[in-house]
């Protein structure tokens, strides 16, 4: 993939309306949604099939609070940057299950756009800033900006 190609994003979200609107928003922002998964099984299978650049993962899925396990599975692929997108950030374990950070629900379009800009720059090996992105919080610990490529 060339650095200028739009990020390919997997949406793991059990609320169909939220997922659909998010898909539109990602399209508006110039990104590609490679798939939407509502359950952990679906999410892990789609992750394997599509090898997305970014995965937005809700904690509560159709089969329960399985988003943490999904994040862990998806971030096994060093190519994929996982970001939680949840109203339940308290459920995220201390190590963030390999995720880069979390976008708090309810999110604004600005925060989603800003987080993706941050991720794109981090993946490109730059050092982006989080200025003004109150709704996006990084995992603690050393630089986990994702794989440079």
């Amino acid at each position: 993939m060339t650095p200028s190609a739009p990020l390919r994003i997997l949406v793991v979200e059990d609320e169909v309306l939220i997922a659909l609107e998010l898909e539109f928003l990602l399209g508006d922002l110039g990104y590609t949604t490679v798939g939407v998964a509502g359950s952990s099984q679906e999410a892990i299978a789609l992750g394997r099939d599509t090898a997305p650049d970014v995965a937005f993962v809700d904690i509560h899925l159709i089969d329960g609070p399985t988003g943490v396990a999904v994040a862990r599975a998806l971030s096994e692929n060093p190519h994929t940057t996982v970001v939680f997108m949840t109203a339940n950030a308290k459920r995220i374990p201390d190590d963030f299950a390999g995720a880069l950070g979390v976008i708090a629900k309810p999110y604004s379009e600005r925060v989603v756009a800003g987080a993706l800009r941050y991720i794109a720059e981090a993946r490109a090996g730059h050092a982006p800033t989080l200025d003004g992105l109150d709704g996006f919080r990084l995992a603690p610990g050393p630089d986990r900006a994702g794989p440079p490529h």
Binding site: E15, L17, I18, L20, E21, L22, F24, L25, H60, A87, N88, K90, A104, K105, P106, Y107
Partner: peptide, 24 residues
């Protein structure tokens, strides 16, 4: 409290998505 907080946030997100989807 966490549960209610979580539900309220999720519902706000759903309501906002609904509005935006209809707007589109």
């Amino acid at each position: 409290l966490h549960e209610v907080d979580h539900r309220v946030k999720n519902n706000l997100q759903v309501i906002s998505s609904l509005m935006l989807l209809k707007a589109r």
